[in-house]
Design a protein around this nucleic acid. Structure first.
Lengths: 345, 345
DNA sequence: ATGAAAGCGCTAACAT
DNA sequence: ATGTTAGCGCTTTCAT
């Protein structure tokens, strides 16, 4: 299977020879350029089929400077990437969009900043036409790295700095959080707590801000920082229960953390939603529908966001349409959220 | 960030000029070849740094025929790929091994056979040096496709056909299943059922065979086929309960399915393990430790298998060591399993 | 509409 | 030890 030196792949040259045309014409046919007469097209096509010709991508890239591949860079320990369905759905959206445009997805996993150099080299090496960067914590230098490498980038989630040359796709975290808290209040809850995500990520901060928009005078003890894992959610819930034993509701910044919180609640015998109402965030179906009880949560269309990211990047890559009209500047996207009511609140 | 026509990346030529050497020497330094005198090496290094030179991969690939990239092809709806922690762990092992050898991972997701052509083109296009193929169902033509493309391949899981030119990495499914069933019997259980995986996959068949090795005369009604999802496990459990109400143990072919089965058991009020003992397969920690009760299961080192797959493939790719000795033929690998006892049995 | 020819940036013989 | 040179397979002017 790996015997070296076997059947070399046919080249364009071979196709041209077989079709009795020049390499240039063969190339035109292969790339679907206009202006090759039908019979020739036909002959070249046949030659391609007969030979099983497939263009050599390296050669093509060398001249076109196009890879038709984009990198997905995840600045998060691989553990979380694979454990958290959030990424899964996002990547799925991306993959779909890229595939639809004949682009490949190159996955670059980083296990801490030690890998950043490797990623930098890769991006600068011209392997990919663009990059999608994920899960940035404050001060993350991945985007800067991509910029230095001259690789167009779209970021997943609002970056910590503002600067409108940086494109990103995010959902309305703050608005979604407000909806969640208002809903809880509407239920008549009086002591609403919040389990936040890691506060070095904007999504966490935005959700916390939404919480505060509605409850500006909330007792600070009602707010605990988690880490987007079930264990973290469990720990946070335990802490909350200890500090504010009479809480009657909690808005958790992610479904995954909420699942951990629910577990703790069940363990200590608090009924959900009777004693404590719980609202999550994300609407990760695989989590929210399977918790006990099923989770009321803020829905965001994660897969769609992935698709949007890829679409935005691809658009950025397109040649600046030469119609005299000023090119429509690609812009960041913020998608809406909506509350999905299940049983936990 | 995407302004076209800005700072072209420096070429080797530029580095050579700046260092005052020939392109060849610059190349030697960049690639760490022996036999360049220290002062020159120094000068070239400096030029590289000053210019921020990074080799153009396309150009390099064109001549070396090496991509330093391998494809991971998953023959499974993306949904399952991202939902099932099994893949996650496997990919993680692969990613680690590849990274350690400076190889990139290109993820090729296929959503049904419609995508096979696309994958075939990609493999044949010479984008990657090899492929790792996953989750094959019977009659899957992905491996044939890779072979036609001339791309060395290692398969995850024993393929359905035998032919020892095909390399694969799998765990001892049959032995693990035997251990599980024997353990259940050792507990004094008399009516041991089995929830199998999809029987068009060898892993499922092998686990079922292990079950039968120990219980050759098991009532056929004790065996139900699932689909490696929690829902499938739940359905299978329900069916089992209906057919054989007095069953007192069940060996489930995957932890993920077992989680669904446990849910059903809880719902209908059977205590685990008192009324029904449950043993899973995989030891997917994120699942097995979090079920209620925690799952006794057959452990396989999934991440390690990923690593082994990548290692095996990389070895296949190496030039056939020129020491006169006959090259050690790379061989398929079967890893051991072991029972991990938690609370469910 | 088609062909000839000039590279894209790099590595690897081959010379020196 | 270093430089010269010939491609790798392809796209793309530029002629015709």
């Amino acid at each position: 299977m790996s015997e070296p030196g076997f059947a070399p792949r046919p080249t364009l040259e071979a196709v041209a020879a077989r079709a009795g045309v020049s390499r240039a014409t063969a190339s035109r046919v292969v790339n679907g350029s206009e202006g090759v007469r039908a019979p020739l097209v036909e002959r070249v096509r046949r030659a391609v089929d007969e030979l099983g010709y497939v263009p050599n991508q390296a050669a093509r890239t060398l001249v076109t400077r196009r890879n038709d591949a984009i990198a997905v860079v995840v600045a998060e320990p691989e553990t979380r990437f694979f454990t958290d369905p959030f990424f899964a759905q996002q990547v799925r959206g991306i993959s779909r969009e890229l595939t639809a445009h004949d682009n490949q997805l190159v996955l670059l996993l980083t296990e801490g900043t030690a890998d950043y150099q490797r990623v930098g080299r890769y991006l600068a090496g011209g392997h990919v036409d663009g990059a999608l960067i994920f899960s940035l914590h404050a001060e993350d230098e991945l985007p800067a790295l991509a910029r230095r490498a001259g690789v167009p980038t779209v970021i997943g989630g609002r970056p910590g700095w503002s600067d409108d040359r940086t494109l990103y796709v995010d959902c309305d975290n703050r608005g979604g959080a407000r909806d969640a808290v208002r809903y809880l209040l509407g239920l008549g809850r009086r002591q609403v707590a919040h389990i936040a995500g890691p506060l070095d990520q904007t999504a966490s901060v935005d959700r916390l801000d939404g919480f505060r928009d509605v409850l500006p005078d909330a007792d600070p003890r009602l707010i605990v920082e988690g880490d987007f894992t079930p264990e973290g959610g469990a720990r946070a819930m335990t802490a909350l229960l200890e500090r504010v034993p009479d809480l009657d509701a909690v808005f958790v910044a992610s479904d995954v953390m909420a699942s951990g919180a629910l577990r703790v609640l069940r363990t200590v015998g608090r009924r959900v939603p009777e004693d404590v109402a719980v609202v999550g965030f994300d609407d990760m179906v695989s989590v929210a529908e399977w918790t006990d009880p099923p989770l009321t949560t803020v829905h965001q269309d994660i897969e769609e966001m992935g698709r949007l990211m890829a679409g935005l990047l691809l658009r950025t890559l397109e040649p600046p349409a030469q119609g005299g009209a000023e090119p429509v500047r690609a812009a960041s996207i913020v998608t809406p959220t909506r509350l999905v009511v299940r049983a936990s609140a």
